[in-house]
Design a binder for these strands. Sequence first.
DNA 1: GCCAACGTTGGC
DNA 2: GCCAACGTTGGC
Length: 164
Amino acid sequence: MMSTSRYWLFKSEPDVFSIDDLKSVPGGREVWDGVRNYQARNRLRDDVQVGDEVLFYHSSAQPSGIAGIMTVVAAGYPDPTQFDPNSKYHDPKSDLDNPRWIAVDVSFERKFPRLIPLTELKSTPGLEDMAVVQRGQRLSILPVTAAEWKIVMQLAKKKPTAAN
DNA sequence: GCCAACGTTGGC
DNA sequence: GCCAACGTTGGC
């Protein structure tokens, strides 16, 4: 069985698509498309399952960090944007009969009362090995362990401090 | 804007 | 298959 994590972290630049954008979509449900890295694609194709829970991470933001939670509501299927010439994710080398890129559907769960900044994740005991804090980790689809998930849920409840 | 850390491409 | 050049991600 390829099945691994039940928890994930998906990155998105909030200038492009933020957790507030997801929340305001009718039904709170959206296609998670535009993933154009083979390792990340493989995870979407092979490992991400309906019902998996996902941390919504804001990247290239001030500050970057975890903004809330969404749920996977459709497992991997061909990313429609790869065949759309008007999409910035269009891939002319992808073949309809053998699609190269994969999307999943996600549903808004909740927004945290505060954003948990990357700096805080890095300094939190128990998150030392979390994929998103690793140096040079650039994949937009990252696994999260059950233990890490639990710690992040605790952090989400904490009051913001001056450091945030 | 800088730059580290990749990933991809293409010449050979 | 090697590897240099180039492109991208993303924190700072």
